[in-house]
């Protein structure tokens, strides 16, 4: 399908991989895209490897099969690389975005990968600094916007603020923390030279 982007999120149960996919769908829809977001359901338990998926397109999406060859893979927990093949189905020009303090070059060496594009951002540290908890999915959205160009940054900041304003009207620090997390990750995400 033309104009179709498929994304796979890897995380651990309880880490917010499902929420990340839902947030991305919401953000992309705010830009007028057609969206899908769905998790992979198995025996859910805290800490177990989980996946979730997105489809984004300029046109209505009718596909209802699994995502098997995503063009973008986002890894919320870098320790997953020891147990899960996060590159599975990713084409040669596909992009991998890791939540890690390592540089893309260090990450490439660590997983022994040749080809494909690697991006890294220390989303956990950013989340701790800005939101006060290790919830990497919000900053990962900012990093994803920069690394892939899939989302419009200004629009995303505007939408995030608008959305959180309703829920956290009495706690403006939550809203600003999340906005700051996205901004910082957008600025700090690193690609390869």
């Amino acid at each position: 399908m033309e104009n179709l982007t498929e994304i796979r999120w890897h995380g651990r149960g309880g880490q917010g991989a499902k929420t990340a996919a839902l947030l991305l769908a919401d953000a992309a829809m705010g830009e007028g895209k057609f969206v899908q977001a769905f998790p992979e359901y198995g025996p859910e338990r805290m800490g177990a490897p989980v996946q979730s998926f997105n489809r984004l397109s300029e046109k209505p999406i009718s596909l209802h099969c699994s995502v098997t060859s995503p063009s973008v893979v986002v890894v919320l927990d870098p320790s997953l690389i020891n147990t899960v093949d996060v590159t599975k189905g990713l084409p040669e020009d596909g992009a991998l975005l890791f939540n890690t303090p390592l540089s893309p070059e260090e990450m490439r060496e660590k997983i022994g990968l040749s080809g494909k594009r690697i991006f890294t951002v220390d989303a956990s540290s950013i989340a701790l600094k800005t939101i006060g908890r290790d919830i990497p999915n919000t900053p990962m959205l900012g990093a994803l916007a920069k690394a892939t160009g899939l989302l419009d940054f200004d629009r995303m900041i505007h939408d995030t603020r608008a959305k959180l304003s309703k829920k956290f009207a009495s706690r403006p620090e939550v809203i600003e923390g999340n906005v700051k997390a996205i901004e910082t990750a957008y600025d700090e995400v690193k690609g390869e030279e």
């Binding site: 769908a25 829809m29 057609f34 899908q36 977001a37 769905f38 998790p39 359901y41 209802h64």
Partner: peptide, 8 residues
């Protein structure tokens, strides 16, 4: 597929 899948 539909029950837990988010769509436009």
């Amino acid at each position: 597929i539909i029950s837990h899948g988010m769509e436009s």
